[in-house]
Design a protein around this nucleic acid. Structure first.
Length: 562
RNA sequence: GUGGGAGUAGCUCAGCUGGUAGAGCGUCGGUCUGUGGCACCGAAUGUCGCGGGUUCAAUCCCCGUCUCCCACCCCA
């Protein structure tokens, strides 16, 4: 013990000395650099991706592209066409479709104020500030009127009669002011003219009565609403029905990032709009997405289906009331979240993952037993249509969707390797949505696949297609070989081969080493010997064999191997 | 938004309840000037996530912050 203590004390003393020496050295160095170059080093702050977003580099994108290619192929075979809608949409589009009470709309959207409201407020302030200068006042009033009219057209001003009157009044005052101070003389006199002063004051008063609501543009949190908007906006109901569309691209939700959940995430989805609500359509949509996922060899696939009826007194609302009553009876045994939902959204109680609630939930009434006749028939037909197509499903009476617009058929697909975020696809029928967004009554059904999760699951299962290396690595040596190398590279690339042409000369061994590191299939050897003979040596890197070819033979051979 | 864990080389990670940082893989170069994968040798790369505090001294202890991971919430 005491020995150790002594050692420590000795070390400590030693270091004190060293520290002092270092401090001295540092001081000297500082003095030296003061005389020499004063190095002004900028703080090196590295940029990094914003939270919840990420880069996908070639080692990722090769799988992403594979997934997207298969999606396009499969969806194409079902007669779907791609739609690309903007990433920016009006806030109201999602507030109306998804439901303004949902988390997505109430707190997870990235929003931008279109600035019109601020601009108007600014102009209103300027107008007031220029009360004493009729000339400027008139100019400001003109600007303000322009903005107000735009705001009125885009419904940023409440469409009331009094607002309408106020704008018209301003317009009238503007015209009178404009005509009465047309001449310079009038302009000079205007400031003292009681008539004009009165108009100016009135205009200022009236303008400030008008409230302009901010108008928000958002980054889309999902695409179904966008597709419906587009369907309406392009009058697609005049096309042969139904219209079958698919999309893929980034969506944005400001949630806490987690495995399989990002703030910028990607969805692949499809929608069938218009026509009738034949159960065969529901079944075909499900068959399509299952075909797609099967083709990718996604492991551990589980398809759950359910029907949540429709919004009529003899259907879902009736069941929701029944469910609420049953839940109230067992309220004491439920957690706080579920207790709250009894009143706000009893269906979501069925979703609960709480272990302690499972036994209670299991005894609750099933919605399938309380559907109206039409919905019950529809559900039964969807199931038989699925069987007809050989689609294996599991009925899950607890499957309810979180978004307001769903009705009747709902489904969800889960996969392996995703932790608690195991849903890889969700979808359902939404017959009222297009009408809700201002279109004609239109049937609709669709799904969205979480591409990030799909990719995770594929990676987890090792279902990543081998990355393709180069087809041909050109191992050229010597000045004479270089022009020939450039020429043959061009020829081969024109034929669609992936060719690596080293920009500078390499030692032979190095060239072959690089060729194999780049997973090249062949090394094309091109040195003095070959140049003088007008031939090429082609080495197959897998087995080390090599052969000489004349140019036409070489091309023919490689094309045969493609 | 709430709770827990983590952050050390390009990657995966070691680092002894404080003494100025290491391995493997990868990268680059050499052994090797017409034959790669192997082997051997060598090199580069770190403000130990960032900021502050305690200390003679902090990768280590304390506080804050950012990011990632896990769970909740919600959803794809």
């Amino acid at each position: 013990m005491s020995e150790q203590d002594q050692e420590k004390a000795a070390k400590r003393a030693q270091w004190e000395e060293i520290n002092r020496a270092k401090a001295l050295a540092r001081q000297k160095q500082a003095e030296a650099t003061d005389q020499g170059q004063a190095t002004a080093v900028l703080p090196k702050k590295q940029f990094q991706v914003v939270r919840g977003t990420r880069d996908l580099t070639p080692s990722d994108t090769h799988l992403w592209n594979h997934v997207e290619t298969v999606a396009r192929e499969v969806f194409g075979t079902f007669g779907f066409g791609e739609i690309r809608s903007p990433i920016l949409e009006r806030f109201e589009l999602f507030a109306r479709s998804i439901g303004s009470e949902t988390d997505i709309v109430s707190k997870e959207m990235y929003t931008f104020d279109l600035l019109a409201s601020r601009e108007v407020m600014h102009l209103q302030g300027q107008l007031y500030g220029s009360l004493r200068n009729p000339g400027r006042f008139t100019g400001n009033l003109f600007e303000l009127l322009k903005c107000l009219k735009d705001a009125w057209d885009s419904q940023q001003i409440e469409q009331t009669e009094s607002n309408d009157r106020a704008i018209k009044k301003l317009e009238q005052i503007y015209k009178e002011l404009y005509s009465s101070i047309e001449t310079d003389e009038a302009f000079l006199q205007a400031a003292n003219d009681p008539q004009i002063r009165k108009m100016v004051l009135e205009a200022s008063d009236v303008s400030r009565q008008i409230v302009v609501w901010p108008q928000f543009v958002v980054l889309r949190p999902e695409a179904t609403a966008s597709v419906c908007r587009s369907y309406i906006e392009h009058s697609m109901f005049q096309l042969p029905q139904p219209v079958k569309l698919y999309y893929m691209g980034p969506m944005f939700r400001r949630e806490r990032p987690q495995k399989g959940r990002y703030r910028q995430f990607y969805q692949i989805g499809a929608e069938v709009l218009g026509g009738n609500d034949a159960p065969a359509i529901d079944a075909e949509v499900i068959e399509m997405v299952m075909t797609f996922l099967d083709r990718l060899e996604l492991p551990g696939l589980q398809l759950d289906i359910n029907s949540i009826g429709h919004n009529a007194p003899d259907c879902r609302p009736k069941y929701v009331e029944l469910l609420r009553e049953e839940l109230r009876k067992v309220k004491d045994q439920l957690g706080t979240d579920s207790r709250r939902r009894i009143e706000t959204n009893p269906l979501r109680v069925l979703d609960s993952k709480l272990e302690s609630e499972q036994a209670i939930i299991a005894k609750l009434p099933h919605i399938a037993d309380h559907l109206c006749d039409a919905c019950a028939t529809h559900y039964a037909d969807v199931k038989s249509q699925l069987q007809l197509r050989g689609v294996i499903y599991r009925e899950n009476w607890r499957l309810v969707r979180g978004l307001d617009y769903y009705m009747r058929t709902t489904f969800e697909i889960t996969a392996q390797g995703l932790g608690s975020q195991n849903a890889v696809c969700g979808g359902g029928r939404y017959d009222g949505l297009v009408e809700l967004l201002g279109g004609p009554p239109t049937k609709g059904i669709g799904f969205a696949i979480g591409e990030d999760r799909l990719i995770l699951s594929l990676q987890d299962a090792g279902k990543v297609p081998a990355r393709q290396g180069r087809d041909v690595y050109i191992a050229w040596m010597g000045e004479h070989a270089y022009p020939a190398a450039v020429r043959i590279a061009k020829l081969l690339r024109n034929e669609g081969f992936s060719v690596e042409l080293p920009p500078t000369e390499q030692k032979f061994g190095k060239a072959l080493e690089r060729a194999s590191k780049l997973d090249s299939r062949y090394a094309l050897i091109l040195g003095d010997n070959e140049v003088s003979e007008g031939s090429y040596t082609l080495k197959t890197l897998a087995d080390g064999t090599q052969e000489k070819y004349a140019e036409p033979d070489l091309l023919e051979f490689l094309k045969g191997q493609q």
